[in-house]
Amino acid sequence: MIEVSNLSKVFPDGTKALSDVNVSVPDGDFIAVIGLSGAGKSTFLRCLNRLVEPSAGSITVGSRDVARLRGRQLQHYRRTVGFIFQQFNLVQRLSVLDNVLSGRLGYHPTWRGLLALYTEVDRELAMSAIREVGLSGKEDARVDQLSGGQQQRVAIARAMAQEPQLILADEPMASLDPRLSDVILGILRNYNETKGVTVLVNIHVLDLAKRYAKRVLAFNKGKLVFDGPVSSLDDDLETRIYAGSLEAL
């Protein structure tokens, strides 16, 4: 259960990215976050794992407010949240296995990480995550030798290796061939259904959101303008969500 209340973010240059967002996410939900670029979707997701510092408000996960965590406690929270980036954010010169294993770094003392002393359990988790995203046999390949779609699957495997309670995916298909969207979203939905892990995905293609998500959060200019099941999205609502899109062009 994630309880977001009165979440706001103002960037140092004065941009109001989020204003007064209130959302409650039950465990095991699959949520699509939609809206124009610049509407605050990305900031919202990044606030949830504190890659962006919220300016005000609280984010309660379980029973504690993660918006106030610092240092070691923040690391312990983050290791339970898998984050998937639009640009994959893999270390290109390392192997697939090394990249996926780095998802386990939060679970060990620093010195073990420095010396790459992963446990057998870590290795098995990593191997099964790689299997799950369909990259068996590529463990030792260097990431820069993989295609974009394969790289994003490595990034998903890294998130899975964290054994997360929550997966946040920030436009995971935006830099890929559109035909790969179903592969990526399929993996995420499958993971959500088999492990019961909550998934929040930023999507700007409405059609995809409708096909995969159970619930939709829509942002416009930093405000949450819609929160409800996919089925209740109608044309009228869509125009409101995408209001101003022509000016943006």
Partner: peptide, 25 residues
């Protein structure tokens, strides 16, 4: 900066970010 952000998001300690995100680069 991407890999640095990624390793921060998995909860790795600062020196591990240096070791696994910066050093390989």
């Amino acid at each position: 900066r991407g890999p640095i952000e990624a390793l921060e998001s998995v909860g790795a300690a600062g020196s591990n970010v240096v070791r696994w995100a910066i050093l390989p680069q």
